Simulated assay, not measured.
Amino acid sequence: MSTAKKQYKRVTVKSLVDMKAQGEKISMLTSYDYTMAQIVDRAGIDVILVGDSASNVMAGHETTLPITLDQMIYHASSVVRAIERCLVVVDLPFGSYQSDPKEALRSAIRIMKESGGHAVKLEGGKEIKESIKRILRAGIPVMGHLGLTPQSIYKFGTYTVRAKEDAEAEKLKEDAKMLEKLGCFALVLEKVPAKLAQEVAESISIPVIGIGAGNGVDGQVLVVHDMLGMTHEFNPRFLRRYLDMYTEMTNAFKQYNTDVKSGDFPNDKEQY
């Protein structure tokens, strides 16, 4: 069992590598706005991911594809203003890095300069190798993302577990080692078999953070709306709901509506 060995006043990319070396698990949650990020930061979470999942939980899109670079910068800026301790990693959205390494660098620079984020995350392996290299050469920290890559949903056609077959598993292992060799500081593995994820984590020196990848990796990430139970129709096996905010919030809104309609709110103590 691992325990925290050091109190990090400010979490950096080096902090995460140190945590892995010391056997300390890394905690990571998404945030997209100032208020939520402030709470997450003060709770002692290590990393905030400003995920392109904002496309789903904030904007109501079916996939992560529609969110734009400008929108990601807006969300990331809101998060950065709230934090004192967390490392803030920002997703590069679909279309901002896949086609051209120069465009990838321009997108990453905009994220860093305009939002104040600390690092960027890109989905994919050898297909985006040149984009990653160009971003890293500019001094911008990069987190990789392998396994289920939601920006490629129309290629896969499903959100099912990835790398169950030998060929895909072998490619994933090769891509993970390539990302480490290029200089990525960490890697997210999404929805892959636990045994494979552990094998990857043990084969590379950079932290591997899992979502639906078992407990043999170096840390975990969840979408904050999911783990708080604000979403209620999304029920993957890997999700643990720590609250039932959907029910709690619905009841609170109903009670407020009742109190307003009845004239109970505001009462004598709630007015000037």
Rank of each mutant, 00 (worst) to 15 (best):
T158E: 08
Q151C: 04
I135G: 03
K133R: 15
G144F: 04
K121I: 06
Y159M: 14
F156E: 06
D166P: 02
K126M: 11
L182Y: 00
K121D: 06
G157A: 12
I153C: 04
L122R: 13
D175Y: 15
S131Q: 14
A169F: 13
I132W: 01
T149V: 13
M143L: 12
E123C: 13
R162Q: 15
T158D: 12
K126E: 15
V161L: 15
G183A: 02
G147E: 05
I140Q: 08
L122C: 10
H145L: 13
L179Q: 10
K155H: 07
H145P: 11
T158R: 15
L182N: 05
I128N: 00
E123G: 10
K121M: 04
K133A: 08
K129P: 05
L146G: 03
A138D: 05
R137W: 00
I140L: 10
A163E: 09
I153G: 00
G125D: 13
L148C: 07
P150E: 04
E123A: 06
Y154N: 08
E174W: 02
Y159F: 12
G183V: 02
A167T: 12
L122T: 06
K121A: 07
A163N: 14
K164S: 03
K133T: 10
E168H: 14
H118K: 04
E168F: 07
M178V: 07
P150K: 00
E165A: 07
G139Q: 02
D175W: 10
M178G: 03
V120N: 05
E168W: 06
G139T: 10
G144R: 09
